[in-house]
Design a protein around this nucleic acid. Structure first.
Lengths: 341, 341
DNA sequence: TTGAAAGCGCTACCAT
DNA sequence: ATGGTAGCGCTTTCAA
């Protein structure tokens, strides 16, 4: 039979209220009494019952704010589904979400949205935003105002964010290298299409790729790196142009968005299924090209889990006061090929 | 503000006790009154609060029985960790597990162990056992005695088991085909090492492999199929012998246990890293050969999730009376290569 | 500084 | 057949 607050109270010869004050560091307890109570808590190995806590907490509902830059981006749809799933599972516990979506990655827009959320009487904030100084400052001032913040999908360096839930960019880059190395036929002459060379995650994925290919002893060279701005049209034009000008490309690596455009160019160049193409994430366009055989493999990062876990962990923090063990919570690097899509 | 039993009672002009009787089909309510109450339940979209239920249920703790044949098998260790994790998360809700492990796959032993568990006052049973008539019969009589049963890792055909949580053997076989096809250099002359040709899962994995290779239009042939009985020593000897007698083997496919022995033979034949080797599951021996480069990829089935989910789903069933949507609950087919291990 | 009691949603049990 | 009430573990509030 588990130990309850009653047991502690009895053992220490006090009332449940007093034990509760000690447990929640609410003060107003005579020091020696407090020590005694704490001793009993340890001795009896007391663990608060979540159902009890939750029921008592129902009186004042908890609102958690969520911020995503992915308005209209299917990748972030999955993150939102994770948010919603967590919200549903926690609905019995008085939790509701306040989700704000914006389009694009403009820091000013993000800051306005984040501050807007912070005004809305939220108990915690869960944000996927850009890791630049202005935003970092805004986040820090939100944290200072008493709202704990979790970073999702993209970490926030130099801030007091509670934890990060998201992709291990280095591992995902290495994994892409493993697949390209496995699928290649002869030397690998790579065309790399990246979202932006000023996005840390994208650069990390390129560096990890080349590092790992060297590590594998693979014969390879990066023939060209193009920036797509995560835009399908741009990706198409630049990929097509590169494939035309560099006829000996034997592999394509797409680190982020723009996959559809790049693949279209690969198809039109008659290279579909002839050279390995590795990209990231699982969105409808990617699935299509994977099924057709244009894409060899896509490396995914469990966006659903990112949304789900971050909300769950924030709730756990709010409810039980304890932060997770480590502050870096990586989701698995998942390889999807046609057969296990 | 969510709807509570109180609200229903007020709306129907009855007491909470009466509503509770209707909700839990406990009878003893005038039919017309029952109809009225049911109408209010639908109208107000009432959903029982889990925290409340759990708290009230604490008076009589729930014990769930778990049965595994994997004494000493590292694969099943992960399933057990899943069980334990679920037990821990549900401990606040009065749930405890009674786990029985046996060694080997002898039906008689399994039946004895299963019946032993059923005697132990368990509210539900979660079992990974062999799918043979004697066992099916034993399981059915346990179910008839009022204990719901879930099948984990290996399904129980022809029984009234509530649901199956485990691997999609066909998909995992197809995925292996995808990897072998990706990694091959030229025609694929396959050596297949399987646990037993009388285990449905193993056979399914072979059939799915050949089916998918044909589907891919790959040039391949199965040169030899050996049975290892999931034994390392046997696997080693038969693999070594096969590799010696069939010198043009260009790929190895290991559908289950015995991976270590088979890989040792591949190494000694000087083929490590030269030909693709695909196997299943993530155990220490597999990891080692994957790191060394002997194994190309291993296809995993999330054993932790199998343990975790099955207990969680059983609890949900006991608590909320509702079975899961479908009765087949497949875990993901996960590709692990050196880089994302 | 401390205790006592009410109440969160639900179930079980006794009385009617 | 139905209502009333106590109690599950915890928090909160009011009184002392």
């Amino acid at each position: 039979m588990p130990v309850t607050i009653r047991d502690i109270a009895r053992a220490a010869g006090v009332s449940r209220g007093t034990v509760d004050r000690v447990l929640n560091n609410r003060g107003g307890v005579r020091p020696e009494l407090e020590r005694k109570i704490r001793r009993m808590i340890l001795e009896l190995d007391y663990r608060p019952n979540r159902a009890g806590k939750v029921l008592a907490a129902l009186k004042k509902p908890i609102k958690i704010g969520c911020f995503l830059p992915g308005a209209g981006n299917p990748f972030f749809d999955a993150v939102i589904r994770g948010f919603r799933q967590a919200e549903q599972e926690l609905s019995d516990f008085g939790v509701s979400l306040e989700i704000t979506l914006v389009k694009g990655f403009d820091p000013e827009t993000h800051i306005r949205a984040l501050n807007g959320l912070a005004e809305k009487n939220i108990a915690a904030l869960c944000a996927a935003t850009v890791d630049v100084p202005e935003v970092q400052k805004a986040v820090n001032s939100i944290i200072t105002s008493g709202i704990p913040v979790a970073a999702v999908n993209s970490d926030l360096s130099g801030t007091g964010r509670l934890f990060y839930v998201g992709c291990d960019y280095a591992e995902s880059g290495r994994t892409a290298a493993g697949i390209l190395n496995m699928a290649r036929n002869g030397p690998l002459n790579l065309l790399v299409a990246t979202g932006s060379l000023s996005m840390r995650g994208h650069v990390q994925r390129i560096e990890a790729l080349t590092g790992e290919l060297e590590n594998c002893g693979a014969e390879f060279s990066v023939r060209r790196v193009i920036e797509t701005g995560d835009d399908t049209g741009v990706a198409y034009r630049r990929t097509a142009e590169a494939l035309k000008n560099i006829p000996d490309i034997t592999g394509v690596y797409i680190t982020s968005g723009g996959t559809e455009g790049a693949c279209r160019a690969v198809c039109e160049a008659g290279l579909a299924g002839k050279i390995p193409v590795v990209c990231f994430d699982d969105i409808p366009a990617t699935r299509r090209f994977l099924r057709e055989g244009t894409i060899t493999a896509t490396i995914c990062q469990e966006p659903f889990q990112q949304g789900y876990r971050s909300v769950m962990m924030l709730f756990d923090y709010l409810m039980n006061g304890r932060a997770p063990k480590g502050d870096l919570n990586f989701t698995d690097t998942v390889i999807k090929i046609r057969q296990n899509l």
